[in-house]
Write a protein that binds this DNA or RNA. Sequence first.
DNA 1: CTTTTATTTGCAAAGATTTGTGATAGCGAA
DNA 2: TTCGCTATCACAAATCTTTGCAAATAAAAG
Lengths: 125, 125
Amino acid sequence: MTPQRLSVLDIIAARTGHIGADEVWNLAKEQHPYVDLATIYRTLQLLKSLGVVTEVVIGNKLHFEMADHHTRHNHMVCSVCDGVQTLTPDYLAEFSQRLEREFGFSPDLNNITIGGVCDRCRAVT
Amino acid sequence: MTPQRLSVLDIIAARTGHIGADEVWNLAKEQHPYVDLATIYRTLQLLKSLGVVTEVVIGNKLHFEMADHHTRHNHMVCSVCDGVQTLTPDYLAEFSQRLEREFGFSPDLNNITIGGVCDRCRAVT
DNA sequence: CTTTTATTTGCAAAGATTTGTGATAGCGAA
DNA sequence: TTCGCTATCACAAATCTTTGCAAATAAAAG
């Protein structure tokens, strides 16, 4: 645990929703002017592999948020407006159990994001 | 429809499995020495939006394959070995219908990939 | 077949993310 | 304390993908 890593964690914890890697960087620089973006990314990947944060792909960018077990959820990202809706875990529960049972494959539920088109954008078309 | 686009489509159609963007480029250059990688990527995105090809994220790279309706399937990608297993559509059917029904969200089933750890890699750990 | 219009291309450059590297800091053992 | 080991950092450079723009090409119209 280094000051840089603590900063990253603090920043994500302070945010209720998700936050982009670049935004984390900007905020981290306020405390450690010389942190490198690479360090941010490495820390983010580290925290993700530790299961502390969750990665969400929005548009072409990586976003992150706390992997709070009380509020675990998945995301639906609209490919038209990049809007995000959340999903409670039970939506994927049956599906993931089946993968586990039939293939021995352990899906990383924290990092499953469903792409598609939201109702509003579909109505516009 | 331009020659470049036809090439890209031919290349993907000629392949049974998925193929990386860079590989498509290399093959396309054999027919059109001056095609640019950007054109490949643009074409790939176009074909994807037309529902002709499917995008699969493997490791940190984009791969593509024909979205043959007869053999529609999804992918499970192991984050340890980058191995890919396929899933018949019925695994996601109930789940996607539920999203549609309850949220009006139209998931893009062609482009859902499940990350996780396969049984073999899990055994190693 | 020629002109017009819209789309696509190649190229260059920008974005986003990852990787390699030497310097440096922390830590346990001698 | 000093040596040696390991891990992390900042910086630079590489990788993969996307975007802006002028020139080239395809499709539509006459």
